[in-house]
Design a binder for these strands. Sequence first.
DNA 1: CATGAATGAGACTTCATTCAT
DNA 2: CATGAATGAAGTCTCATTCAT
Lengths: 197, 197, 197, 197
Amino acid sequence: MKEKDPKEAKRELIFKVAVEVFSTQGYHNATMSEIATAAGIGKGTIYEYFSSKLQLFQQMMEKGIQTYYASFDAEELQRKPVQERLRLIMEGHINFCRQQSRLPKLFFWETGIQDEEVKEWMLQMRKEKEAHLQELLTEGIKSGELRDHNPYIMAFMVSGIIGSVWAPLVLDEWDVDTGLLADSITDNIMNGIKNRA
Amino acid sequence: MKEKDPKEAKRELIFKVAVEVFSTQGYHNATMSEIATAAGIGKGTIYEYFSSKLQLFQQMMEKGIQTYYASFDAEELQRKPVQERLRLIMEGHINFCRQQSRLPKLFFWETGIQDEEVKEWMLQMRKEKEAHLQELLTEGIKSGELRDHNPYIMAFMVSGIIGSVWAPLVLDEWDVDTGLLADSITDNIMNGIKNRA
Amino acid sequence: MKEKDPKEAKRELIFKVAVEVFSTQGYHNATMSEIATAAGIGKGTIYEYFSSKLQLFQQMMEKGIQTYYASFDAEELQRKPVQERLRLIMEGHINFCRQQSRLPKLFFWETGIQDEEVKEWMLQMRKEKEAHLQELLTEGIKSGELRDHNPYIMAFMVSGIIGSVWAPLVLDEWDVDTGLLADSITDNIMNGIKNRA
Amino acid sequence: MKEKDPKEAKRELIFKVAVEVFSTQGYHNATMSEIATAAGIGKGTIYEYFSSKLQLFQQMMEKGIQTYYASFDAEELQRKPVQERLRLIMEGHINFCRQQSRLPKLFFWETGIQDEEVKEWMLQMRKEKEAHLQELLTEGIKSGELRDHNPYIMAFMVSGIIGSVWAPLVLDEWDVDTGLLADSITDNIMNGIKNRA
DNA sequence: CATGAATGAGACTTCATTCAT
DNA sequence: CATGAATGAAGTCTCATTCAT
């Protein structure tokens, strides 16, 4: 039952190594040789599983996104106040950065690939993420929980904040309690930084 | 009077084309041939002004950073409340994105270059930007204008917000009044998005 | 039994072609493309065996030197009168020129390479060759077989004579009996050209 | 009267610098820029006097050869015993190496140029030099001053000896009295190195 | 299936030569 | 005349991809 398809197991292995190598070297500086060696397999073997370097990168990203979204318990997110949901999103994001470390870098930073298809797909990803946030925020406005501001602006702001968490966590290896950090960020998003005491 | 050094004029031309090409294609996908053709000059001519592709990229980035920082009137920023200073920073940033369009993309996104020197330099840039923000926010906390929260967290949040503005402005070519956008963002940063009515 | 490592066999092939091409065209005029074509392999294949043009040249020379020195039976050279030993050196040298034809040209003539390492190495080669001769001659002086003249001068003279044999043999394709030529040269070195009859 | 044609003076200047640069860097590693800079003139100016890099090299060599042959007083050489004439040739050659230092290196060592015309010309030079020697030696044999050996062999041997003098003098900067060295070499050529005491 | 030797398109870079000033 | 900025042909080397074993 735990036995996986050996074919699938090797795909997983390649994915794992690819994340490591691509995020360390960047897409262009990474070589197929390097990935093969790191995976302990032959160069040609990668081509048994992926038709090209680009496709490997693409599928690795897609798989990563799925993992990313899977890290949010969708059920749990429903029917909660916006503040609580934002907090959960932050927490999930922080956990993902911690666990995957290298992967988020590729999501948020790798733009060297200029293949039209990939560019389109990454742009699409950004749009979806922001559309999702915008929806959440619009709901909050309607329910009166949030101020009646432009939800489009709010959305990319929150999106920017989410994206900015990665650098301190991974680059600076910041060791902070996930819950506290999520609280703090959410609080700042909700209440702003101005002192009203 | 307006006559420039012709040597310098050609440097400018190459810089201008380089921004265009590098930001459209990314560092690795851009070729020297392409830049030369786009500039209407011979391939070898670029090498009369820059010793290598990497040096061209680096100097183009440095020049861009200078322009970026120059777009903030430093004098004006002193001795004003934090809210006002944040607003001016936002306004300057928005204007820069509008005017340079392609350049900010390189600042915030190009990470495919793996040359140690450049990587170090770009990391340094990020640190400086955040240190600067952190300083500003710390001042605000001391003066009582801001809440007594962790300024490190605040800093990368604000930094993330600033970075996130570029995409809607340039990719979506969003046509919004600079003043209004700066107001709106600053207001959200200061007061949060929660409805306190 | 005769089966060689196929990897080694291709190295040999490249070496063989490299000698041909480098000695015909000179180091700078030879191109990697040309060598590849002459070897009937792809351009990139050479780089699977040698990391650069310079390294290929260097290793080819080193291998040649080994072959050169191997062509003298070291054992046989010991404990014989100087005249006999000189004759054997001449004979070995003549045979080597005949067999390798192109290679000696590179040893004695190629100086266009300006890479410090190679220059140093070739200079070193010359020194060693002359030191070896000088030693031989010094022994002869001590034993009374040779005149008590400056062995340093004698050494570079003999060295010059050895080097000069290549041109008639290879360039002019002079067809002369090896033994007779070796005898004649050795006799002239030992007894001079003056008529004492 | 001492006033030279200024055009000719600049030719001389370029020649002088060319010898320096070509002999230091070798033909291929030397650049026209370098020569121009070293001569304190513009790059294009060289092309006012020489139609190409190759032509400059060629004419420089030709001029050098003339200087070389001019260093032997032809009149004086006639009607003297072979030994004396060989000694004078050696002395002239040593002086030339001392004075010109860099130039002989090009004569005897530069073979990287593969232009058919130049190759032919340098081969021709070698042939002439040896023919000249051979003639001298043949005369000596006829007059009974020299042993009745193969003058062809003798010629390239003596030629090799002459060529070998350059390296110690220039590379090792050997400081030895010209007359003594010429005597010593000539004596060895004439009487050989064997001890007949 | 897995492999890795072989390949060649294509990138960067150099430098002899030209020509407008 | 003298110059040196501009040029592009040509060379070295990399690496994704293929295919015979």
